[in-house]
Design a protein around this nucleic acid. Structure first.
Length: 811
RNA sequence: GCGAGAGUGGCGGAAUGGCAGACGCGCCGGACUUAGGAUCCGGUGCCGCAAGGCGUGGGGGUUCAAGUCCCCCCUCUCGCACCA
């Protein structure tokens, strides 16, 4: 062995050797359990990977390598989320074409992942922008269409002026585009495709209970779905026979206190019921609401505003006619776009009533008999008062009574409302999966038959988004003009493309059999590998990708294609790595640290170890390069130990009982920590063990001690692991060796330190035999010189004994 | 505003209610060196010569014993933000 550890001398060799021997091909050895570990597949950006990205890939690689050694058939593959706005925007900016940049960027990512020693089965590499792949994205679109889950509707939708396309609700952040955080979105009326994710709202919510996900992510999904129980009721509009205001409320029990109603400015009823004398003010308000930016409109701090329509609705409970207002605090997109206002029990209605001098009846009293605080709404549950037949009922009973009454009278019923809206999937952009739909003058909307897939994205030089609301594909006659699959007559293709999130809603299935060309996945391989055993990615995907993928999985389950209802039974979020300056790593800030630079300076193994050691896997922390120097130094010390051992002829040796015990304890603890993804502490244990071993003569180490140490190091530092294994005389790769086992009997301590406390303060320590008799330990403790000195003649009031831990004396 | 998570040495971080600060970084001292941003050895929470005392954001509480459990407050990060 060389005197000094020089990663540049060993890493390129093993990188090539592993590739040559196809070491990381997926194996399906009979009799072994399977493990499918998956990282969220990345959009390959032109900036390449930073050390921050590796904080996801390296730990997952360690788990994959560990599972393989622990006897699993492991599926660990990588692919590229290559379709979509990020790739297209980048190419536009650089005046290049995504079909050219995407493969180049992906190749660079792949190179970097190999550089870092990540073990993927590259024969399973996938790319969502390749026709072999998006053919099946289209197939899934048609599956949803056939099941009534894809529909077309005219709607007022979010439009980003920079992206020149419609965005999904989830892609609007604080009133701005998620790709352009400084660009406020506006509304545009277009006919669009939607996926009916709301049909799955209940199941998406209920099935969260059965999956092993971080609680905050589940909570975000629950909040996003936003299930509310309540009632949908309708009150007739006076003077407009047949017209009614339908509204949703979670507090139907307060209906006797309804003193006015509010419609969203965009509500279709507004134009019909507004009186002549109010029309001017109403029109102006509606126009102003449309003009207003969404940030202003959605601001909670803004004072409420609204105008009276001049029309009245009959409160079918109180019998009173109440004024109908319009106000922008009522949203057209939720419920029915109309509310009943119970200002005595709702803060928002209260504020509105105060401002416009509307009546504020009080119809709920605190259940404990106290009086409700004055000059504010009483929003808690309580007892109905001033409420006709509801008087004296508790809120929950009153809710049931109102629903029953409304249902009997035929103007309402108990219902459930969701905050989540349907998923808007049309994009007026070039670089996406074409929607496999044809419009025929005779047959209308016609799906492209499965055997005509894929609908290939045509080559276009000039693919800039037009901003007209039509995709650039509309400018390609060869693409647009086609024959109707039904009647054969002239027809036009849909020119919008699919939201990139469609591509990532099923990719995890594809890795099971990525080259199968008769279905999205080969059924037998799917049954074997799916679902994903461990899914790892950033928390930023809490409500988009993770919700969509769950929905598609449920659709596939319903269609009988798969046997599981959840794609990712276990999910973990890696912590964000900030730059050394505490900011986000970005090229523009000039604070990006690349794996390339770190590998060149310290080697891939040292980089990997620091990624693992810098903190708990799921917690955020700042990058710190001196840490890599530290793990490189650790590897130097391991190298020095190995060299001494190898040069002494790898003696079987005569390890002391303590050394043997330490070896077994180390295996036990490291195994436990790796299983729980506590890589930082797992490595700390290995470092501690090294500090011990480094002091021993080679003859006193023992071959078992050394080999198990190297085996445990191998998943974390695969290059030196492989090198050491060969130096120890092995021919086969260490990465296919079984994970070391420990002898429980050898992990038990024979002596223990028992702490003696007096009034909670440590006064002495006793080295005693493990599991010694309680009476003996108590006697020993009380006899201790330090204890007698500190007792100072006082008699112990109480003595508590915790076996093998401590004696606590109270005086 | 509502919800969630987090506050431990100079720094990253360890600690099934039972010795706070494992492991590493940094720093200090020493050895070897022409040299050290290499390597090795030792030290390193704070105050104190010491004995000892004090210490996990702040304040209370439960307990023989609290970083850990309970209540109140402060700070930071993230999510949602008029969803009726």
């Amino acid at each position: 062995m060389d005197e000094r550890y020089e990663p540049s001398k060993i890493e390129p060799f093993w990188r090539e050797e592993w590739e040559r021997t196809n070491l990381y091909l997926t194996r399906e050895t009979p009799g072994r359990p399977k493990f499918y570990g998956l990282e969220m597949f990345p959009y390959p950006s032109g900036d390449g990977l930073s050390v921050g990205h590796l904080h996801n890939y390296v730990p997952c690689d360690v788990i994959g390598r560990y599972k393989r050694m622990a006897g699993f058939n492991v599926l660990h593959a990588m692919g590229w989320d290559a379709f979509g706005l990020p790739a297209e925007n980048d190419a536009l900016l650089k005046r290049l074409h995504p079909k050219e940049t995407v493969p180049r960027y992906a190749a660079n990512f792949k190179r970097q992942l190999k550089l870092a020693g990540c073990a993927y089965d590259w024969t399973r590499e996938i790319n969502s922008s390749s026709p072999d792949y998006y053919r099946w994205t289209q197939w899934f679109f048609l599956l949803l269409y056939k099941r009534g889950l894809a529909y077309r509707a005219l709607g007022s939708q979010w439009w980003c002026e920079k992206c020149r396309t419609i965005l999904a609700n989830e892609q609007v952040v604080n009133g701005c585009c998620w790709r352009h955080m400084e660009t406020p979105v506006s509304k545009k009326d277009l006919e669009q495709w939607y996926f009916k994710i709301t049909d799955y709202a209940d199941r998406l919510l209920a099935d969260l209970d059965g999956i092993d996900w971080p609680e905050p992510i589940k909570l975000m999904q629950r909040n996003w779905i936003g299930r509310s129980e309540g009632a949908e009721l309708a009150f007739p509009v006076m003077g407009h026979p047949g017209k009614e205001v339908r509204f949703f409320t979670t507090r139907p029990d307060t209906v006797f206190g309804v003193s006015f109603m509010v419609l969203a400015p965009e509500h279709p009823l507004v134009a019909e019921i507004v009186t002549a004398e109010n029309r001017g003010a109403v029109d102006e308000y509606v126009a102003q609401a449309r003009r207003q930016s969404e940030i202003e409109r959605l601001s909670t701090v803004k004072e409420k505003s609204g105008v009276f329509t001049g029309a009245y609705a009959r409160n079918l409970f109180s019998g009173k006619d109440v004024p109908i207002w319009i106000a922008d605090y009522v949203l057209m997109g939720y419920g029915t776009g109309a509310i009943m206002a119970a200002p005595g029990e709702d803060e928002r209605d209260f504020a509105f009533a105060k401002k416009y001098g509307l009546e504020i009846p009080v119809v709920t009293a605190p259940a404990d008999g106290s009086s409700a605080p004055a000059n504010q709404a009483f929003t808690e549950r309580g007892i109905a008062i001033n409420s006709g037949f509801l008087n004296g009922m508790k809120t929950d009973d009153a809710i049931r009574a109102v629903c029953k009454h409304a249902e009997e009278c035929g103007f309402g019923r108990a219902t459930i409302s969701y905050r989540m809206r349907d998923w808007l999937i049309s994009r007026q952009r070039y670089w996406g999966c074409p929607i496999p739909i044809v419009y025929c003058a005779k047959d209308g909307i016609v799906p492209v038959p499965d055997d005509q897939l894929p609908v290939v994205l045509p080559d276009m030089k000039d693919y800039q988004p037009s901003g007209t609301g039509r995709s650039p594909l509309a400018n390609v006659p060869e693409f647009v003009n086609t024959a109707c699959p039904k009647c054969g007559g002239p027809a036009e293709r849909e020119t919008d493309t699919l939201d990139g999130f469609a591509c990532s809603s099923w990719y995890f299935l594809r890795f099971a059999a990525p080259h199968y060309d008769k279905a999205p996945f080969e059924p037998k391989a799917g049954d074997y590998w799916l679902p994903v055993d461990l899914y790892v990615g950033g928390a930023e995907h809490a409500v988009m990708h993770l919700l969509y993928a769950r929905m598609w999985t449920k659709v596939m389950f319903d269609a009988g294609l798969i046997k599981f209802k959840e794609p990712f039974p276990a999910l973990r979020n890696q912590g964000m790595i900030w730059a050394a300056d505490g900011q986000k790593m970005s090229k523009s800030k000039g604070n990006v640290v690349t794996p390339d630079a770190m590998v060149e300076k310290y080697g891939a193994d040292a980089l990997r170890l620091w990624e693992l050691f810098m903190g708990p896997f799921e917690e955020a922390t700042n990058w710190n390069e001196t840490g890599v120097a530290g793990t490189a130094r650790y590897l130097q010390r391991v190298w020095a130990l190995m060299r001494r051992y190898v040069e002494a002829g790898c003696p079987d040796g005569a390890p002391s009982a303590e050394t043997v015990k330490r070896a077994h304890k180390t295996i036990k603890i490291v195994t436990d920590h790796v299983e729980r993804m506590r890589f930082n502490t797992a490595l700390a244990v290995l470092m501690d063990q090294l500090n011990y071993l480094a002091k021993l003569e080679p003859e006193r180490l023992g071959r078992h001690t050394i080999e198990t140490y190297v085996l445990m190091l191998a998943p974390m530092a695969p290059f030196v692991g492989e090198e050491f294994w060969r130096e120890l005389g092995h021919k086969d790769s260490i990465h296919l060796e079984p994970w070391p086992k420990f002898d429980s009997a050898l992990t038990v301590d024979e002596t223990v330190t028992v702490v003696v406390q007096i009034n909670g303060k440590v006064r002495d320590r006793l080295e005693i035999e493990a599991d010694a008799a309680e009476a003996d330990v108590r006697a020993l403790a009380l006899a201790s010189e330090a204890v007698r000195r500190n007792l100072d003649g006082k008699a112990p009031k109480k003595v508590i004994y915790v076996p093998n831990k401590l004696v606590s004396i109270v005086v």
